[in-house]
C-alpha cells in the first residue's frame, strides 16, 4: 500500500503525466499495438465492423463483484458482442479526481487488464485528464471499441418475430441491487454480488448452436424490462412473459421486497436477452447453461403479434397483466 494520490500535475501533460501512463496504464495495457503516437494504427479487415462507445460513472467505484474498471471493459465488449462482433480493439479515456489514491487506480487498471485479456481484446490507446477536487466523483472512464462482425451474424432489436422464444442468460437485477446496497442509503446488508461479466464467449457459444438468432441485447441500465420494451417497440411486436419463470436471486427478491422494487427494472451488467426461433430455444438454453456466466439461462416468454408494443405477464393466478412500462428514477415504494 502506498499513500500516493493523483494530483493535478499528473494531468498537466509533463513528466508526471508520463510517469502515470508508464507506471499504471502501460504496465497493465501493454501490447504491440498500444500506441505512443497520437493514434493507434490498425490493420483493416474485410467484412463489417461494429463500433461502440460508452461512458462509465458508478458510485461507489468498487462494489461486490467488480469495479468501474471491469465494468468499463464489460460494457463496451458486451455492446459489440450483441452485434455478433468479436471485440478487437479498445481505447479508454480516464477523468480522475485530484486526490484519488494511486493504489485504487492501480486496482482499476488491473481489473481492466484481466477482463480485456479474458476476452482477447487489445487496449490500443488511452487518455488521462485530472479534474480538480469535487469536479468529478473519483474516476470516470469512457471506453470505445471496434469489433469484427461474424459473417453470418445478423441481429437487431428490430428482428423479433411472432412465435420466437425470449431467453434471458441468467438471473435478473443483480448489478442494480448490488450498487443500491453499496451506496448504503437504505441500511440493508446482503452479500449479493454484481453480475458484471464480459459476454463475448457467451455470444460465440450462441452462434455455435445456430446463426438464426434474431435479437441479442445486453440488459444494462433499466434492466431486462426496459430491453424487452425496446425490442417490442423496435420490432413492432408484443412480448408475453411467464412471471414464474423469470430467474431472480432470492437475495435480490428480499431487497426488492423491502423497497417495493421490480427486479426486471434493476440494472444488469452481464445478462443477455436473446430472441430466437422456438425450434432452437432449448438447444440455446442447454448450451448457455454450460457457460461460465450463464448457468441460470432460461426461456422466459415468447414474441406474439398480440398486444403490440407491450410486455404482458402471465401471473401466478393464471391471468395476464401488463408489465408497467419503464419509468425514470427508481424510487422505493414504502408507505
Amino acid at each position: 500500500m502506498s499513500d500516493k494520490t493523483v494530483t493535478l500535475a499528473h494531468g498537466a501533460g509533463g513528466s508526471q503525466t508520463n510517469e502515470l501512463i508508464e507506471t499504471v496504464f502501460k504496465a497493465h495495457f501493454s501490447n504491440p499495438e498500444f500506441t505512443a503516437d497520437d493514434a493507434a494504427v490498425l490493420p483493416v479487415e474485410k467484412g463489417r465492423l461494429a463500433f461502440s462507445t460508452d461512458g462509465f460513472i458508478v458510485s461507489p467505484w468498487r462494489f461486490n463483484g467488480g469495479n468501474i474498471g471491469k465494468l468499463s471493459i464489460c460494457g463496451t465488449v458486451n455492446d459489440l458482442s450483441c452485434m455478433g462482433a468479436k471485440p478487437l480493439y479498445m481505447t479508454c479515456a480516464f477523468v480522475i479526481e485530484e486526490g484519488f489514491p494511486m493504489d485504487n487506480l492501480e486496482e482499476i487498471a488491473s481489473a481492466m487488464e484481466k477482463t480485456a485479456k479474458e476476452v482477447g481484446v487489445k487496449i490500443v490507446a488511452g487518455d488521462t485528464k485530472v479534474a480538480g477536487k469535487g469536479q468529478c466523483d473519483g474516476v470516470f472512464i469512457t471506453t470505445t471499441g471496434i469489433g469484427q462482425i461474424m459473417e453470418n451474424a445478423h441481429t437487431s432489436g428490430a428482428f423479433a418475430k411472432d412465435g420466437d422464444a425470449v431467453i434471458v442468460s441468467g438471473d435478473v437485477g443483480r448489478h442494480g441491487c448490488t450498487i443500491l446496497l453499496a451506496r448504503d442509503d437504505y441500511g440493508i446488508e446482503s452479500d449479493v454480488d454484481s453480475d458484471c461479466a464480459p459476454l463475448w464467449g457467451t455470444v460465440e457459444s450462441l452462434y455455435s448452436v445456430t446463426n438464426d438468432i434474431h435479437v441479442i441485447r445486453d440488459a444494462t441500465r433499466g434492466g431486462v424490462g426496459t430491453v424487452l420494451y425496446e425490442i417490442a417497440g423496435q420490432s413492432n411486436v408484443g412480448i408475453t412473459l411467464n412471471a414464474s419463470s423469470i430467474p431472480v436471486d432470492p437475495r435480490v427478491k428480499g431487497v426488492c421486497g423491502m423497497l417495493g422494487l421490480e427486479p426486471l427494472y434493476l440494472a444488469c451488467e452481464g445478462r443477455l436477452v436473446i430472441v430466437a426461433p422456438q425450434e432452437h430455444a432449448d438447444k440455446i438454453v442447454e448450451t448457455l447453461r454450460k457457460g461460465k456466466y450463464t448457468q441460470n439461462a432460461t426461456i422466459i416468454g415468447h414474441i406474439t403479434s398480440e398486444h403490440i408494443g407491450r410486455v404482458v405477464m402471465e401471473t401466478e393466478i393464471g391471468t395476464q397483466t401488463i408489465l408497467p412500462a419503464p419509468k425514470g428514477e427508481l424510487l422505493p415504494r414504502i408507505c
Binding site: Y186, G187, I188, E189, S190, D191, V192, P250, R251, K253, G254, V255, G257, M258
Partner: peptide, 9 residues
Amino acid sequence: IDASGAQRE
C-alpha cells in the same frame, strides 16, 4: 431481520 438473505436492523 432477514428476508431471503437481505438483512436490516
